[in-house]
Every structure is written in C-alpha cells, then in structure tokens.
Design a protein around this nucleic acid. Structure first.
Lengths: 348, 348
DNA sequence: GTGAAAGCGCTAACAT
DNA sequence: ATGTTAGCGCTTTCAC
C-alpha cells in the first residue's frame, strides 16, 4: 500500500505550514487566509487525492464520529432493519457505525463492548443481552454516552428507547378474546429479558382482567440463544394436540413465528379456520404465509432514529435521562378472524 | 465523560516508564521484564479499568484492525446474513467491521468508501453497485486491500468471491424444462450489474441450447434501486394474463420473489398446480410460502469467510490475484413439480 | 496572513 | 531489566 498523502505533503508541495493547510481544508479561520493560498492548497489536496486521516484527528480531538451498535444478531431481520435505520440517521449526522452481534451472550457482549470502546466510539447503542445489567451500569459509571434500544433494565437510570411490550401483548390477546377465542396458547422465550417477559405478562394479565380461565398447558417457552426450530415445532405440536387444543397461538417474536409458520405449512390444519395465529414483530413472514399474519407492528424507524438522536445529544453533553416507550400497532391480517364463530355475523 | 486512563497513568502509578507498561500489556519482550513489575503493572491496569486506545495505536502502527464492508442494503436478508458471517470471521482474526449501505447508488458508494477509508480501515469488502468500476479501479491503484463480494467486473483484475450466476440460472431453467415446463417467464432487475444480467443470460441460454422457443413477453425487468413491490406485481400479473400464460416463473432474486409471493398469496391461482415458481437465493420465504420454494441456494458461509480471508491475506501483503466463483445448489421444494404433467408418473 | 510547536496515546528503536 | 525518545497526522494556541 502506497503511503497516503498527509497534511504535511500538501504543506510541503505548496510551501506553507501544515497549520494553514489544516485551516483551509477544514474551512476554519477562512477570513484571514489569502484566496490564492487557499486555492493552491485545495488544488494540491485534490491532485494528491488527499483524504484526511480521521485516526489522527480523533487522537487530537477525542472524537471519532463513530458509534458502536450492539445487536443480538445482525442476521435477524429485526436487528438488520434497525441497523439500517440507525446507519442512515447516523450518516445524516456525519457518523459512522461499527457493529457487533452479542448472540444474546453476556460474555460476547462484554467482549464486544471492549472492542468497540477500544476503537474509541463516541457512544454506544445497545440491545442488551440477558445478565448484562452490571456491564451497562459500569459503562454508565465511566460516563460513556449510551442508549439502550428495544430492551432496558427497569432499575437502571440509563437512556433507552423501547416499546411497551406488556401493553402490546395485552391488547393483542384482548383482541383475540374479543374475537371469541378462549383457548389461547403462547410460545415465548425462556429468558430473564424483561421485554420478553413483559410479552408473556401481558398475555396472562389479559386473562386475569377478563376473568377468563388460563391453563398452564397453554404456555410454552423455548430457548433464546440457539436455533429454536425444533423446539418451536414441538411447542406448536403440543398446543394443538391437547385434549382440548388451543384455538389460537400467540408467537412472542418474529423468530418464533417464522419457525412456527414453517411448521404449520407442513400440517393439514388450516389458518385461521382450525387455528388462529398472531405474532409479535412485523416481517416478510406476515405476508408470505398464506393467511397474512395478524401481528404487532413496532415503530422501527422511530426506535432507531430516536436512539441515534438521544445518543448524539448525550455525546454532546446532554445529561438529561431520556427513557422512551413507544406505542405499537396491531395490524390485523387474515390469520385471525374478527369473529371466531363466523356464523354469528352471517347475514340474513 | 471522565478522562480515560492511559498508559502514562499506569506508568505514573507504578513508577515505571510507559514503554514498560506497553510491553507488559502487549506481552512483548516478556522474558526480560521482572515478574513483580509485570504484576504491578497488570494490577494497576485492572484497577484503573484501563482500555488500550486503538486510535493511538493505529496512528503509530498504521493498522486499525478494522475492515470496511459495503453492501447494497444491510436490511436485506442476503446482505445481513453475509454481514453476520463476515463479522464472525473477522472477529476470529481480531478484526472489527464498519459497514455502510450503498443503496445501489454509485454516488453513495463513493461517499461511503471515502468515509470508511477516512476511518483508516485496513481493507474493504465491497458488493459493488452499478457504475462503480472506476471507483474500484482507483482504489486498487491506491493499493488499498480489496475484495469484491457477490459481484465483480469481468475486466478488472481485482480479488472477488462470487458465484456462477449464469450456470446457476441455466441449470435452474433446465430443471424446469426437464420437468416439462415450456412457457417459463423470468422477472429480473433492469440493471447493468453483470451478476444479475448473467442470471437472465443463463435463462436465455437454456432456451437456446435446448432449441425451445422463447417469447419476449416472458421476460420482465423491474428497477433495482427502489421499492419494487408494485412493479413485481404488475410483472407477475402480465405473465399470467398472457393469451398463453406462462407455466412457471423464475424470480431472479430474493427481493423479487418475496414481493411476487406476497402477490400470489392474494390470487386464487395455486402453486404449483396452476403456476410453478422458482427463485434465486435462499430465505425464510422459501419455507413460509405454502408451497416451499424451489430455489437456488448460495454458499453464503463460504462466500463471506473466503472474502475475509482473502482480504486479510491481501492486507498482510499478498499480491496474488484471487478470483473465486463458487457453485450454487438447486434446492427442490414444492413450488415446482418434478414432472409437470403429473399423470405421467402415476403408478399402475 | 502565516508559521512554529506542543501534544493527543501509543510503539519501537535505541540507550543505559 | 528498565528507561528515553522520536514520531505517527492532526489541531490549536500563540507568536510574528
């Protein structure tokens, strides 16, 4: 690799000091620099194909204009969509994104954080994995600009942008109940992550508030940190094989619904006639499945954009604690029926 | 943000020179450093929660251990899956990934390249957008370690890892022909990107080699750089509304097939009975659609891993030109029939 | 208007 | 076995 041209090379070529070159190229103190010199410098820079060395600049300014992003798995559409939004919003503000996938492992998350901080990112956007509360706390104590996304720890006074998972689930399950469904199963993750627990809590709360019976056999949990295809299939299988099979299943994430729908495709049973399904998270799955999926839509754009803006504000010294819970929307598709016993609304 | 501890702080605390601290913390020259001092230094580093400043290190060493990744759109599952693989492979080699989405725009691609290079990435992995040949050429002339992925420019002597798109398409279309399909439509992108053109060329070549008639009305192209939902729908609609409707459609990318399948879901027609479909690229869509998709599978793992390894070799000074074309696999699903006129294989 | 020089945190060649 | 020092490319203060 040829040596890259530096400020000095330009200075030498034009016959001025590096300081002047720096001023001109950064548009600083322009009023007190002669037009001719400025032009000469710019020309030389162009001719040498000069590209400022951000590394050197950063060392001096203590700013890298880089933000670190830690998601669970960049290959998951939820994460990658978010990443794209964050990338765009960051770019608008002249920031670049470094990323890493934690795989829901606190060990990987910690290592990743170290690496990103080693690269001197100006701040971090983190979808925190389970058991990383202490890491987050430590980062905060070190004064590192930080905003959690998608998930948060209720005890921690740390910026976050998330959705109201409890409410979203609650409303979704109520929707099913209003439609006449009674035996409603749920497949969720077996995890300590509050935002995922909330989805299950919303589910149980709906039963409680409506005074409807809830059977333990309707609740299934799968592991979050490994391929869950088989586990999900087995859960679905159990739910529909009960002496009194469930009439509807609520999938608490896109990963789960994708696996479940794949499985349902192999079964003779028909959605929504024989079984209704409803899922958290939008995804292509919603429309690719033969019965377009009724699902809980998350405001990804807003989630990502606000995270970036809160982070940038924090980087600029804003000390205010900002915690945002955004609302979701229930998008009704064909995988559930507005009125379970269709005949009730039959016309004359 | 509190000032971060530096080598100097440790040196001061322990009462040694920064050089010693650097040696100890980097495990260099360990043989000639006393155990006690080494221990003291390590303890101090831990106590101060020292994290090496990669920026400073980079300035000195001219290595950032960062690679820049430019994809078309990180939100596309193809890109994000690849990104994940690249991330993992990079991490194994102690590298971090900075990324950006070009949106298939040469202007964005150039800007992105500049930004990533400004951050002093050690090398670039690029899925080049249309009309970026000159950019790539320039990068190469500057001696920047480089490997193209997924796409390449046949004229350029630049490293690449890609697949044989022509062959993959050719074989896929032949498969359809062998199954008895004759009126086979294709929906591809209207683009100058060779790898996408190759997919269409493979299609036409199959007709030519088999001596089968091909109608212009079977070939449709949609724009690549914008949401193509409507365009795809309209293309599908035209293909199945021909006086002699096509019997099969070949979608030349995951983006196209996803949109097309969504549309097919809204139609009364049944796959594969009324229409067979076959797609390039694996994706969840393959199994979520009611008739699991016959598709061309790409070796993403190998694609990503080899790209990283070739890049790292190049960064380490390897001058050898490496151009790899990997083979794909046709995965047969239920969206096509092995024998179009099913009766022919009917048993007794 | 312009330049000299210090220094960001680190490494490595060169002392001692 | 440990220390000194120059310098990576840049910004910025201060001097002329």
């Amino acid at each position: 690799m040829k040596k890259k041209p530096s400020l000095k090379d330009i200075a030498l070529k034009v016959g001025v000091s590096t300081a002047l070159v720096s001023y001109v190229l950064n548009g600083k103190n322009t009023e007190r620099i002669s037009k001719e010199v400025a032009k000469k410098i710019k020309d030389a820079a162009r001719k040498l194909n000069y590209r400022p060395n951000h590394i050197a600049k950063s060392l001096k300014t203590n700013r890298t204009n880089t933000i670190g992003l830690i998601v669970a798995d960049i290959a998951n559409p939820f994460s990658s969509s978010l990443a794209r939004i964050i990338e765009d919003e960051a770019e608008k503000n002249n920031y670049t994104v470094i990323f890493g996938s934690s795989d829901e492992s606190s060990v990987k998350a910690e290592k990743l954080t170290d690496i990103l901080l080693g690269h001197q990112v100006d701040g971090l956007i983190i979808a925190p994995a389970e058991n990383t509360e202490s890491q987050i706390k430590r980062l905060q104590k070190q004064g590192i600009p930080l905003v959690l996304i998608d998930r948060y720890f209720p005890g921690l006074k740390v910026n976050f942008v998330a959705i109201d998972n409890f409410k979203a689930s609650y409303e979704a399950v109520c929707y099913l109940m209003d439609a006449g469904y009674r035996r409603i199963g749920i497949i969720g993750f077996n995890t300590g992550l509050l935002h995922l627990q909330d989805r299950q809590n919303g589910y149980t709360a709906a039963f409680r508030d409506r005074g409807l019976p809830l059977s333990e056999s309707w609740i299934h949990q799968v592991a979050i940190d490994q391929t869950t295809g088989e586990e999900v299939q087995s859960a679905v299988h159990k739910l529909i094989s009960l002496p009194e099979p469930v009439e509807a299943i609520f999938f608490s994430s896109n990963k789960i619904s994708t696996e479940a729908l794949k499985y349902l495709n192999t079964l003779p049973l028909k959605v929504p006639k024989d079984l209704a399904v409803l899922s958290f998270d939008q995804s292509d799955a919603a429309e690719l499945f033969y019965a377009s999926l009724t699902h809980i839509w998350q405001p990804l754009e807003e989630l990502g954009q606000r995270a970036v803006n809160i982070l940038l504000a924090s980087i600029s010294g804003n000390k205010e604690l900002i915690q945002v819970k955004l609302d979701t929307r229930l998008v009704v598709g064909k995988s559930t029926r507005a009125n379970k016993s269709g005949s009730r609304v039959a016309r004359s």
